[in-house]
């Protein structure tokens, strides 16, 4: 399977999980106790995280915008997810540079994954990027710091659940993530 097709299918799959499954969980039993803020775990940022390491930055930005806008369309939050996702995409390369021991261009044909980075760096990478995404998203959504505890509670409950889903995805689809791409001509 070519790299483009694989990433496109991942995009469809992750948006599908996000929109048709995760967005519906809270309606029945998720986050039900009153007083506790309701929240949705977000898994679609994983699409940006799992793009090959040497993907050009402009493409990461544009695809972040695209995936954010798609989720926005389904959730009726025009621009919110897109803004948070573009911000996360912009920070991706900096986080990768600090976490990876070698230069970026040496990881030509790899995606960031448990196998290529081992568990702790991968989880740090995912947690930092998700945290950035969540901070951007909830700041834009709540648009005030009048109730900081509410903001922090909502942020971390969503972050922790999102991370659990990210780990589940990394475990379940490790083979598709770890595939090395040959004759890849991305700069």
């Amino acid at each position: 399977m070519s790299i483009y097709l694989r990433n496109f299918l991942r995009y469809l799959f992750l948006v599908g999980i996000q929109v048709l499954l995760l967005n519906k969980l809270f309606l029945r039993w998720w986050a039900n106790p009153s007083g506790f803020p309701t929240f949705v775990p977000f898994i679609y940022p994983l699409f940006i995280m799992l793009l090959p390491i040497s993907t050009p930055i402009w493409f990461v930005l544009v695809s972040g915008f695209a995936v954010g806008l798609t989720v926005d369309m389904f959730m009726n939050t025009m621009g919110l997810h897109a803004a948070a996702c573009v911000f996360m995409a912009f920070c991706r390369i900096a986080v990768l540079k600090t976490i990876l021991p070698r230069k970026i261009y040496e990881y030509r044909n790899l995606s960031p994954s448990v196998k290529s980075m081992s568990w702790v760096p991968f989880l740090t990478y995912a947690a930092v990027l998700l945290l950035l995404h969540h901070i951007a998203y909830f700041l834009l959504e709540i648009w005030s710091l009048k109730a900081p505890m509410y903001f922090i509670l909502k942020l971390f409950s969503s972050l922790v659940t999102s991370l659990i889903f990210v780990i589940l995805y990394a475990l379940l689809f490790s083979r598709s993530i770890d595939t090395q791409y040959n004759n890849l001509d991305l700069k």
Binding site: L61, F65, D72, V86, F90
Partner: peptide, 16 residues
Amino acid sequence: NIILFLMLEIFCIRLI
């Protein structure tokens, strides 16, 4: 890259 990032963000904020 920074210019593209800022353009996309401004577009998103306008949508919001």
